[in-house]
Simulated scan of single mutants.
Amino acid sequence: MPGGAWGLVLVAGILECAWALGLKWSDGFSRPWPTALTIIGALASFFLLAQAMKTLPVGTAYAVWTGIGALGTATLGIAIMGEPATLLRIAGIALIVSGIIALKLA
Rank of each mutant, 00 (worst) to 15 (best):
M1E: 12
G4L: 12
A5T: 02
W6S: 05
L8S: 05
L8E: 14
L8V: 01
V11W: 06
A12N: 07
A12Q: 06
G13L: 02
E16V: 00
C17P: 00
C17N: 02
W19H: 11
A20E: 09
A20Y: 05
L21I: 11
W25G: 05
W25Q: 14
W25P: 00
D27N: 12
G28R: 04
S30D: 05
P32R: 06
P32C: 06
P32L: 14
W33K: 11
P34W: 01
T35V: 05
T35S: 14
T35G: 10
T38M: 09
I39E: 04
I40E: 09
G41E: 01
G41M: 06
G41I: 01
G41C: 15
L43R: 07
L43S: 14
A44R: 01
S45W: 02
S45P: 01
F47S: 14
F47W: 12
L49E: 07
A50R: 13
A52Y: 03
M53D: 00
K54P: 09
T55Q: 09
L56F: 03
L56G: 04
V58E: 03
G59N: 07
T60L: 09
Y62L: 11
A63R: 00
A63G: 05
A63P: 02
V64D: 01
W65S: 03
W65V: 01
W65T: 02
T66C: 10
I68C: 01
G69K: 11
G69C: 10
L71R: 00
L71V: 11
L71C: 12
T73Q: 04
T73S: 14
L76A: 14
G77S: 10
I78A: 04
I78F: 09
I78C: 05
I80Y: 15
M81V: 07
G82T: 13
P84Q: 07
L87C: 04
L88G: 00
R89T: 13
R89A: 10
R89N: 06
G92E: 11
A94K: 00
A94C: 14
I96A: 07
G99T: 09
I100R: 00
I100S: 03
I101R: 00
A102M: 11
L103A: 10
L103N: 09
L103T: 04
L103G: 03
L105N: 02
L105M: 11
